[in-house]
């Protein structure tokens, strides 16, 4: 069976065009890249490690019951997990005061609600989304449980309900999205007795942080963690010591490269369509003299006509 040349091109052309429409709008989407969103500023020098923020978070988000009066948990390093959106960790042995005494510091851990979140860019189904006002929220209805968001997050934040056989969820801090929508502060920021974390617009928080750095020489190291890390995060930290307890990260948002590659490969379907055209041309040249059916392959018809 032989395809006439015109037919051949008609079919090739049609297939190429539909390929182009399938992949046509696949260039990288924009996520809400606004600096006008809400954030929190954590001042590590003010935190006394009372775990009240953990209590408030647990209550507001109806997480499994825990004993929050037990301060011995601070002896071990902890990560947020399937029953904790946030944890306080104690770090030892920082000689920070004048007489070289070792002082403890307490550091709160939770999702940083990145300005350009890797998790949201990575999620297959867009189950994680960056809201205009700051929070990165999770929709379990869309999630397929591939855990790519966990691979992507530079802060190792999303946790997984590994023990749940049927409906496991990705667990992470929601920035109390529901409360923020109602004009309230996140539960943890509301309860903090020392105002170690303050809630507000991200750029306002940044200027407060810079003022604190300027007015208290020697109290902090000159670094606002989260100002530039991975393109900026909604949660910002001031610390009396080097941020060695946090990962060292570049300033480029990690999704930049992958989104660039994706739009390079799929953008306007240019690459796939040209590959299709090239292959089509080669096969047309190679098949001109011969029939191109599988019957020929299986030897039912002669090799050459």
């Amino acid at each position: 069976m032989m395809l006439s040349r015109r037919n051949f091109f008609k079919i090739m052309g049609g297939a190429g065009a539909s390929l182009a429409t399938i992949t046509g709008n696949s260039h990288a989407g924009e996520s809400a890249e606004t600096f006008d969103s809400f954030g929190c500023l954590v001042d590590i020098t003010r935190c006394i490690g009372c775990r009240k923020c953990e209590v408030a978070c647990n209550a507001h988000n109806k997480l499994p019951h825990q004993d929050f009066n037990d301060m011995t948990v601070l002896d071990d390093y902890r990560r947020p997990d399937w029953e904790k959106y946030t944890v306080i960790n104690r770090h030892h042995g920082y000689p920070v005061d004048d007489v070289d005494h070792n002082v403890h510091i307490y550091v709160k851990e939770q999702c940083r609600h990145c300005v350009k979140p890797s998790c949201a860019s990575a999620c297959v189904v867009g189950a994680l989304t960056k809201k205009k006002n700051g929070p990165v929220v999770y929709d379990e209805k869309k999630c397929i449980g591939c855990r790519y968001c966990m691979v992507a997050c530079p802060f190792q934040i999303p946790a997984y309900e590994d023990h749940n056989p049927v409906t496991p969820r990705v667990i992470k801090c929601t920035f109390c999205y529901d409360r923020i929508e109602q004009g309230k502060m996140p539960a943890c920021a509301t309860i903090c007795p020392t105002q170690a974390m303050i809630f507000g617009k991200r750029d306002a928080l940044l200027s407060i942080a810079k003022k604190r750095l300027k007015n208290n020489p020697g109290k902090y190291i000159d670094h606002i963690y989260g100002e530039y890390e991975v393109g900026g995060t909604s949660w910002l930290y001031l610390s009396p010591v080097e941020f060695s307890f946090f990962p060292e990260l570049g300033n480029k948002p990690p999704p930049k490269l992958t989104e660039m590659i994706l739009s390079g490969v799929f953008g306007y379907a240019a690459a796939p369509t040209s590959l299709f055209a090239i292959l089509g041309a080669i096969s047309w040249i190679n098949n001109r003299k011969r029939s191109i059916t599988l019957n020929e392959v299986s030897g039912r018809e002669g090799e050459e006509k």
Partner: peptide
Amino acid sequence: GRYWNMYSPMINWNFTSVL
């Protein structure tokens, strides 16, 4: 984890996702 939700990517498209 949620294998029964496998059809989700056919409805929920995320063009920034390599996966």
